[in-house]
Design a protein around this nucleic acid. Sequence first.
RNA 1: GCGCCCGUAGCUCAGCUGGAUAGAGCGACGGUUUCCGAAGCCGUAGGUCAGAGGUUCGAAUCCUCUCGGGCGUACCA
Length: 655
Amino acid sequence: MEILKDKIAEELAKLPGFVEAKLDPAAIRPLLGRPPKREMGDAVFACFIPAKNAGIKPNDMAVKLAAGFARGAMVESAAAAGPYLNLKLNRAAAIAATLAMVEMQPNFGDSEDGKGKTLVLDFSSPNIAKPLAVHHLRTTMIGNAIKKIRESQGWRVVGINHLGDWGTGFGKLIAGLKKFKPEIEESARKIADAHLKAHGMYAQKEPSPLGAMKVGELNEVYKRFNEEMKADPALEDAGRKEFAVLEEHIVALDKKGRTTIDGEINFRIWRAARELSLAEFQRFYALLHLKFERWFVEDRDRRVFWEGQGRLKPDEAFRDHAFYVGESFYVGRNDLCGKVIQDAKTSGVAKESEGALVIFTHGEKKPPVMLLKSDGATAYHTRDLASALYRQREFNGTELAYVVGGEQKLHFDQLFKALKMLGHEWADRCSHVDFGLLLFKQQDGTWAKASTRAGRVVILEDLLDEAVNAVREVIKEKNADLAADKDAAEQVARAVGVGAVVFNDLKNGRRNDIKFDWDDILNFSGETGPYMLMQYVRMGSVTEKYRETFKDQSWESGDAAKLTLDAEWGIAQLIADFPAALARASKEYEPSIIAKALIDLAAATSSWWTATRDTRIVNEADAEQSRARVRLVNAIRKVLGRGLTLLGIQLVEKM
RNA sequence: GCGCCCGUAGCUCAGCUGGAUAGAGCGACGGUUUCCGAAGCCGUAGGUCAGAGGUUCGAAUCCUCUCGGGCGUACCA
C-alpha cells in the first residue's frame, strides 16, 4: 500500500473532481488508507478534510468524486460509501509493481534516508565481575536491532558497549578478594613488584593474579563481602579506600605520574577481573552472533590492527559490530572526568552540598547529579557526562541514544539536563531509549522482577540453553532427516532456540514489561520466532520444489496477472507495507514494528499455503501459474529473511 | 509525599499523528494430514477499550479528575 500510494495519488489528482477541489498528489497521499473490510475495496480516500475546506458535506464530496471518476492504470473503479471513496485497484498492476520493487533492491526496504547522519548508540553495557542476567538480553537485543535497522536506513551507527567496569563496587570486590583470598593479593604483589623492578616497563604478557577464576566466583566474593559489611561497617570504608587507590592509580597512569605499589596491585586485580569477564561475555555475544571490538584508541596495537584491516575508513569502520568503551576509559583517558568536574566548577553550575559536588538539575527538591562523592570518587553521572562529551567530540552524532531500562529515566533526564546546563546544545538530540522490566511468573501466579535477594536471578546462558534444548527435542520429533545430521541439527537448534527468545523479546513494544513465562517461551506456535522461521523455511522448500518440477529458475518472469487469489493480493499489500514499517521502526527506535509486520506477513503466507492446497503452489499442470506464485514466494522469503535479520535472528534453511 | 510509565477478551499484546462494525496470539471447544513441511490451517465462544466528565461531525486514541498497578526518588551502577 505505502509504496503504491504515490501512484494512486497521482492518478486521482488528474480526475476532475480532485482538480476542482485543488487536491494535488501531496494533499491526496495522506488521506489514502485501507478499508476495514476487503469487500469495500483495495484502498480508500477519506473526504472529511477536503470536504471541510470546500464547505460541503463529506458524503456529498464522496458522491461527487465518484461521479467524476475515470479508470486509470492503477485505480479501476471508485464508489462512494458515506464519507469515503472506496477504490478498487488493478491488482495485477499493483502486484507487479510491488514485486518489481522487491526484486530491484538487494535489501528491500533499505533507504538512503540517513545518509551522512550518525547515531551514537549505547547498548548492552553489562557490569563486569557479575554474571550476565536475563535483563541484559533486552538492552542487547533491542540495541542490536536498532543498530541494524538504522544502518538499513543509511545511518552510520556507532555502537558502544558502555561496560560497567568502574565504581565503588570494584573497591569492595578488591577488598573482598584481599580479605577472603589473600593468595590473590600476594600474586598481584609479585607481579607488580616485577613490573616496578623493570622500571615500569610492561612485560609482554603478565600472568593474571586471578588465575582461572570464574565470573561467578568473583560475584560470590562480592556478595559475601556485602553480607559481612552489614555486621562490620568498617569494611565499607575499606572498600571505598581500595577504590580510591585504584582511581588514583589509573589517573596517574594517564598523566604518566608516579604510581604506588598498592595502586599497581589493585589495578592488576581489577584488570584481570575485567579480562575474565569479557571472555565470558564473548560466549553470550557469540550465541547471538554479535561482535564487540575493543575501541581502538585504547591501545596502539589494536589501532595498527584495525588500520591493517582497512576498517578505519569512516562509515565502514562502524558496521557489523560495536565497541567496548568501558566507564574506566573516561577516568583514565586524558582525565575526561576531571575536565567535566573543572567545567562544572568554573561555570558555577556545580555546587557543594553535604560534602559532595553536585548539580541540581531539577531544583533543590529533587536529587541532584552527583559529580564527586564526599569520599572524592567519581560517580555514575560523572562518567556518563564524560562519556557523552567524548562521544560527541569523537563522532559528532546527529543523535545519541541510550538503550537502558526505564527505571533509569530520572538518571537520563538529569544527565541530558546537566549537559544542557553546561552549555551543550546537542543535549536536545540525546534520547533515552527505555524499555520495560523483565518479570517472572511466581508460584502464586503474580509477576515479579528478577532479583538477587529473592534468588530469582536467571542466568542468561541457562535460559538460552533451555530454549535450545527444547528446540533440539522438537527437531528429533518432527524432522528425522535433519536430526540425523548432528552438526546441522545443532546449528539449527541454536538458531531457532535463541531466535525464539529474541523474538519473544522484540515482538512487543519495548516499553512494556516482558512477562517471562517458560510455557510461552517453549511453546513454538503462534506469534513466535520458530513460526516466523517456519514460514521462511517453507518458502525455501517450495522454491526447491519448483526447481525440481520445472527444471528452471526463471520465476522473476512470472506474470502477476496469474495471482488472482485474495490471499495473494493480501500478501502483496503486506509486502508493499514493509518499507514504511521499517522506516517507522527506525525513527521510533522500535523493533517491534518490524516484528508485527513480519507476524502479519507470516500469518498471511501460512493461510495462503493452506488455501492453495488443492493445486499446491507449485502445480505441475500449470507452469505459468506456478512461476507467478513462486515469484511471490521469493518476495515473501526476501522480506521475511530481511526482517528477521534486522531483528538479529539467524536464518535457517531447514528446521 | 512527589515524579515518570501503564490499565483494551480468562492470559499476553496490536490498534500509526482522532475516522467505517475494536483486531491477533495463547488457553478452551469443534474440525482438518495419501499431497511443496500439521512448529500449520479453518471455525466457535469470549470486550461497558478501568471509571467519570470534557473537546469534536466523529474518541480505545486528545484534555481533566478518580480508582487500580508498576518504576524511580543524592553518595550502587
